[in-house]
Simulated scan of single mutants.
Amino acid sequence: MPALPSARFHTTVAHLRQLPREGLPEVAFIGRSNAGKSSAINALCRRRRLAFSSSTPGRTQALNYYAIGRETDPPEGFLVDMPGYGYAQAPGEVRRAWDVLAGNYLRDRPPLRAAVLMIDIRRLFTDLDRRMLGWLPSRLPLLVLLTKCDKFGTAQQTAARRAVLAELAEQHARPDAAVVLFSAENRKGVDEARAIIEQWFEAAAAETASTQPQPQPPEGPTDEPS
């Protein structure tokens, strides 16, 4: 499985009926507006301008699909960049449209294999983040990136990570979630997070291979005893 730096834009999905039908493994990237989601995706993929932040948070209500794999071959999987939530100025109908698109995608999308949740380390969990966690099926592996950790000192970073781990285990029944201190500025946690995401795709590829029919050896002539 090629690494995340093979990612390139594939399509934009504004309605559930537009979702790709390939059934390839997908990893969703979710987070509040201004939590640093686009910067995190670009850092993980070693690209400067793969994911873009909207100049008006909350106005772009769509899922952006990025294909991974050799460009000369069909995609082997997708990174799915979800629109940021928590935009105070978005009208009610825009918020409701986001709920329909994002909520149904997260709850009911069979190819979705895992999720990456971006949390600004200066805010930690908000009520909207907790609502988002409620949408995620418990079967999905979860990686939480505490973004912008360069804004804190080492002791503050450690305390924030401990608090997030405790809440995930005690309030959201996710004791196995990975929590990584992350900064797109100084690259802290980038390699660790990238390795976790690539392992998800590798596991999905191995699972798919194990379910494929195995070729049978050709039948040759049988020597009959005389």
Rank of each mutant, 00 (worst) to 15 (best):
residue 104 N to S: 14
residue 80 V to N: 01
residue 30 I to S: 04
residue 187 R to N: 04
residue 54 S to N: 10
residue 97 A to D: 07
residue 198 E to W: 02
residue 88 A to G: 09
residue 165 L to K: 13
residue 141 P to K: 07
residue 218 P to E: 15
residue 137 P to E: 10
residue 223 D to Y: 11
residue 137 P to Q: 12
residue 37 K to A: 08
residue 141 P to H: 03
residue 138 S to I: 11
residue 97 A to W: 03
residue 103 G to T: 07
residue 156 Q to G: 12
residue 224 E to D: 14
residue 197 I to C: 06
residue 74 P to W: 01
residue 22 E to Q: 15
residue 194 R to Y: 06
residue 115 A to D: 00
residue 51 A to I: 02
residue 149 C to T: 07
residue 156 Q to A: 15
residue 85 Y to A: 05
residue 97 A to V: 06
residue 192 E to N: 09
residue 89 Q to L: 14
residue 9 F to K: 03
residue 115 A to H: 00
residue 22 E to T: 14
residue 74 P to L: 06
residue 109 R to M: 07
residue 151 K to Y: 08
residue 191 D to Q: 14
residue 131 R to W: 14
residue 196 I to V: 14
residue 39 S to M: 04
residue 13 V to T: 06
residue 113 R to W: 03
residue 123 R to E: 14
residue 207 E to H: 09
residue 173 A to E: 13
residue 32 R to P: 08
residue 62 A to M: 13
residue 78 F to Q: 03
residue 131 R to L: 12
residue 57 P to Y: 06
residue 204 A to V: 06
residue 40 A to K: 04
residue 56 T to N: 13
residue 151 K to C: 07
residue 129 D to G: 03
residue 171 Q to L: 13
residue 142 L to M: 10
residue 12 T to A: 14
residue 79 L to P: 02
residue 146 L to W: 01
residue 205 A to R: 09
residue 200 W to I: 10
residue 136 L to F: 04
residue 4 L to K: 00
residue 100 V to Q: 14
residue 154 T to P: 09
residue 34 N to P: 09
residue 159 A to E: 12
residue 21 R to F: 08
residue 206 A to T: 05
residue 111 P to R: 05
residue 60 T to P: 05
residue 29 F to V: 02
residue 94 V to M: 15
residue 117 L to G: 00
residue 87 Y to R: 07
residue 130 R to Q: 13
residue 47 R to F: 06
residue 9 F to Y: 14
residue 38 S to W: 03
residue 217 P to I: 09
residue 118 M to H: 03
residue 40 A to M: 09
residue 52 F to R: 13
residue 186 N to G: 03
residue 211 T to C: 09
residue 119 I to W: 02
residue 140 L to M: 05
residue 117 L to V: 05
residue 2 P to I: 09
residue 59 R to I: 10
residue 52 F to W: 08
residue 138 S to G: 14
residue 59 R to C: 13
residue 204 A to L: 01
residue 7 A to S: 04
residue 212 Q to V: 13
residue 94 V to T: 12
residue 216 Q to S: 15
residue 79 L to E: 01
residue 100 V to C: 12
residue 93 E to G: 08
residue 144 V to A: 01
residue 106 L to W: 01
residue 150 D to Q: 05
residue 93 E to D: 12
residue 12 T to C: 10
residue 197 I to L: 11
residue 112 L to R: 01
residue 15 H to I: 09
residue 108 D to W: 10
residue 104 N to E: 15
residue 147 T to M: 05
residue 221 P to C: 08
residue 111 P to M: 11
residue 4 L to V: 03
residue 130 R to V: 07
residue 201 F to I: 06
residue 73 D to N: 10
residue 78 F to W: 02
residue 212 Q to C: 12
residue 8 R to H: 13
residue 216 Q to V: 15
residue 28 A to E: 00
residue 172 H to K: 08
residue 190 V to D: 02
residue 57 P to A: 08
residue 110 P to M: 09
residue 69 G to T: 06
residue 172 H to M: 11
residue 75 P to M: 11
residue 120 D to P: 07
residue 116 V to W: 00
residue 167 E to L: 13
residue 166 A to K: 12
residue 139 R to E: 15
residue 215 P to V: 13
residue 214 Q to D: 11
residue 63 L to F: 01
residue 84 G to Y: 00
residue 65 Y to D: 07
residue 218 P to I: 10
residue 225 P to H: 07
residue 53 S to Y: 03
residue 23 G to F: 03
residue 3 A to I: 03
residue 165 L to W: 02
residue 129 D to Y: 00
residue 153 G to C: 10
residue 146 L to F: 00
residue 181 L to G: 01
residue 165 L to R: 14
residue 130 R to F: 05
residue 105 Y to N: 04
residue 182 F to E: 01
residue 171 Q to E: 14
